[in-house]
Amino acid sequence: MASSWLPRWFYQLASPRWCYSITGKLIPWFAATGGLLFLVGLIWGLAFAPSDYQQGNSFRIIYLHVPTAILAQSFYMMMAIAGAIGLIWKMKVADMVAKSVAPLGAALAVLALATGAIWGKPTWGSWWVWDARLTSMLVLLFLYLGVMALNSAIESETTAAKSTAVLALVGLVNIPIIKYSVEWWNTLHQPATFKLTEKPAMPAEMWIPLLVMVIALYLLFGLAMMLRLRNEILRRERRAGWVKELLGS
């Protein structure tokens, strides 16, 4: 390794064994704080936050819709960055991270779309509207599905990881272009529609529970990601000595 300017933990991350043990230590913390914050955010958002003066109580879907949409996007970025690290430094763990993140990101995108559609019914009067944000979320879901399909179509695991990483990076470059073009297309075709989440200055009683929910979902899906990553590590390192030692005793 010629590039020694990278911090030490970066190289430690490259070791599946170290990753397995550190995630094992982190999981209970993520589960506890994530679960607690989720409960707080859920009760706060559903029962205590004031209702919206225009949309009434259907506005409460925001506490699920916005965090899942944010997470779906940032998980895509995480997947692409992990893939890039795997490509550049040939780091196995990074490939495993990218593979574990993809289905979770797709699930988040589906959830964001579903909550958006359900929210749309009382707001716009129909289950689906080609709103700019929903449309680009749909495209994001397609990108996730493409990555997952490619990964499962290639038999060799290293080739699959590399190919998916290239595709994820191409998608990452395209996401801003897609977002911009969809937004522009949307303003062209339906001027001044009622936006789901664009509010002039949300009061604090509304956005603090939203923030709590965002953090809670980050923790919970981080937890899910680590669980998947550990399974992947065990599966791929099954012939390694440390795995035999760990499970043999």
Binding site: S58, I118, W119, L220
Partner: peptide, 24 residues
């Protein structure tokens, strides 16, 4: 009842809880 929007709110939260639970 959620001010008449109970169906929508509870449907989305039900779906959300189900998805999160399954993902973990």
């Amino acid at each position: 009842n959620m001010g008449g929007h109970g169906l929508y709110v509870w449907l989305s939260y039900g779906l959300g809880l189900l998805t999160i639970a399954l993902c973990i």
